[in-house]
Computed example of a mutant assay.
Amino acid sequence: MTRPLLGAAAAALALTATPALAHFQLAYTPTVVLDAPAQVPMKFIFWHPMENGHAMDMTQPESLVVHFKGEAIDLTDKLTPFTFKAAHNEAQAYEAALPVKRNGDYIVALTPAPYYEESEDIYIQQITKSFLNKGEIPTGWNEPLGLPTEIVPLNKPTNVLAGSTFSGLLLSEGKPVAGAEIEIEYLAAPPDMEANTPGPVTAEPPSGGALVAMTGHDGMFTFGLPKAGFWGFAALGSGPDTEHEGKELSQDAVIWVHAQELP
């Protein structure tokens, strides 16, 4: 897996292969469009979701904040650990209930603690965004949050049609990042919210390794979503912080979007 930023790329999208599928910080709840107020359970798992593979132990995240109509709701102290029983191992993950009351967009922003990847001798920190909506009323899903690095969606992330495209704008310290590598994965075995295990596998990994896109000169990328479900996009090494505890840090921006079939 290649993590450092690559040189400037002219193409807005370039699918290539890397040796293995990626680490992905998951921020998951099965239903992202609600029609009534709820305490929405969400699971935060550091995993290899496309291959239903190895899960990594998370330590206490640095922050969990839900953004709604310009208000930042800090839920960091609501995070509780649990054991996720992946297909091949068990790992510590976290969960929290998100209060959804009024109509509009809820942007979930998780900043996990850096994870030490022994095989690469680096730390990985994936600053992750996911989205909920109540009442089908748009109220700011496309607004940046001012995170160190983030992907701003250019399509409504709770309602993308399978077979259409998703576009995002990659920012680092608020500025577009050109020539950045974006790894793309499908959530092939959505977690069972009660059992804390992977659910039934709905897709197999593609041959040739990870799916990769590149941002263009304007920091934008576009990818076609061939299948309904949850898709994750990770911009590797896009953040401003490059070192943690004397070792290299890959500070990544991650976003999860939901694609549905046309009714």
Results as ranks from 00 to 15, higher is better:
100 V>M: 00
144 P>A: 08
49 P>Y: 06
219 G>M: 00
133 N>F: 03
195 A>K: 02
133 N>L: 10
213 A>L: 09
225 L>C: 09
2 T>Q: 12
7 G>S: 09
196 N>E: 08
54 H>R: 15
97 A>M: 06
1 M>K: 13
219 G>K: 06
82 F>M: 05
14 A>R: 15
48 H>F: 06
195 A>R: 04
78 K>C: 06
258 H>G: 04
8 A>G: 07
64 L>C: 13
75 L>W: 07
245 E>Y: 08
71 E>H: 07
121 D>M: 01
237 G>A: 09
48 H>M: 14
178 A>S: 09
191 P>A: 12
229 G>I: 12
39 Q>A: 15
173 E>C: 06
155 N>D: 12
4 P>F: 05
172 S>H: 07
118 E>W: 13
80 T>R: 15
249 L>G: 00
43 K>D: 04
132 L>G: 03
228 A>Q: 15
201 V>D: 08
8 A>F: 13
105 D>M: 00
210 A>L: 10
44 F>P: 10
50 M>L: 13
242 T>I: 01
211 L>M: 10
238 S>R: 05
224 G>F: 10
67 H>A: 04
203 A>Q: 11
117 E>I: 08
159 N>C: 04
169 L>S: 03
122 I>C: 02
149 T>Y: 06
209 G>L: 06
137 I>N: 13
248 E>V: 07
107 I>N: 01
232 G>S: 04
12 A>K: 15
241 D>N: 11
119 S>Q: 14
45 I>F: 13
168 G>K: 08
38 A>V: 14
223 F>I: 01
109 A>G: 11
68 F>S: 03
173 E>S: 15
125 Q>H: 08
133 N>I: 11
54 H>V: 12
103 N>D: 14
123 Y>G: 00
253 A>S: 14
147 L>I: 11
7 G>A: 13
240 P>G: 05
250 S>H: 11
3 R>K: 08
32 V>S: 08
210 A>D: 09
167 S>L: 05
114 P>K: 06
123 Y>E: 02
129 K>A: 00
60 Q>S: 10
253 A>L: 10
94 Y>W: 15
263 P>H: 02
215 T>M: 07
197 T>Y: 00
13 L>K: 10
242 T>W: 00
72 A>S: 12
101 K>A: 15
241 D>P: 05
238 S>A: 14
181 E>F: 05
169 L>I: 04
90 E>D: 07
171 L>S: 03
20 A>W: 13
163 G>V: 14
202 T>R: 00
198 P>G: 05
44 F>T: 12
23 H>F: 04
76 T>K: 09
67 H>S: 09
59 T>K: 09
64 L>E: 13
6 L>Y: 04
182 I>N: 05
42 M>Y: 10
144 P>T: 08
219 G>Q: 05
187 L>Y: 11
153 P>R: 14
182 I>Y: 07
55 A>S: 13
81 P>S: 02
214 M>R: 09
206 P>S: 07
109 A>E: 14
167 S>A: 00
201 V>G: 06
189 A>I: 02
67 H>D: 01
3 R>L: 09
67 H>L: 03
71 E>L: 09
136 E>F: 14
115 Y>R: 11
256 W>Q: 10
162 A>P: 04
105 D>C: 04
236 L>T: 10
155 N>V: 03
227 K>L: 14
252 D>L: 02
11 A>S: 12
